[in-house]
Amino acid sequence: MSQNDQSELRYVRYDSARENEFVAAMRQLISKDLSEPYSIYVYRYFLYQWGDLCFLAMDDKDKMVGVVVSKLEPHRGGPLRGYIAMLAVRGEYRGRGIATKLVRMAIDAMIKRDADEIVLETEITNTAAMKLYERLGFLRSKRLHRYYLNGNSAYRLVLYLREGVGSIRTSFDPYGPPYPIEQHSTSTAEGNGS
């Protein structure tokens, strides 16, 4: 452990020129860490479109010890939503803040690209991941019953980055009278555009 602690780590952005080597290392790292299995095309899906939102932690021998994979796209025609799909750190390198650093890099990159919000899911048994994201300001927005193949439930964690993201209301009249007494005189006005 102490040996690892002293070794130098480098944090790099995914580089498509090194696809074969990187993807193989990522798959190894992630399949060991996460319960869900992913095919090669899962990686393709993320890396071909959002390779710049993937960050890697490499040790002094250029061996991959941590990875975060994410994407960023409009959600149902609404807010620009970042999604953290996978996060993994080699067992012997845990507890050194590598995961936090990687997630911060991904979030910062998404902020630079004008993300409105960032979401992800995590198994409810994965308390370490939950603590990590909550420390970064994420809130649990909902619980997802038996979400994963292994039957475990999940929490959806969300981080808003901009005011007004949560509002889908378009034509609300803020000067409308409050309910219940006075409201009825003007109640024919359309109050809710959602």
Binding site: G137, L159, Y160, R169, N192
Partner: peptide, 23 residues
């Protein structure tokens, strides 16, 4: 739960938490 260097703000977290109430 949130750390000192958390992203977001109380105001944004309030907006997120109260999202079902927004519309």
């Amino acid at each position: 739960a949130a750390g000192p260097r958390a992203y977001s703000s109380d105001k944004l977290r309030y907006e997120l938490r109260m999202k079902p109430f927004l519309p």
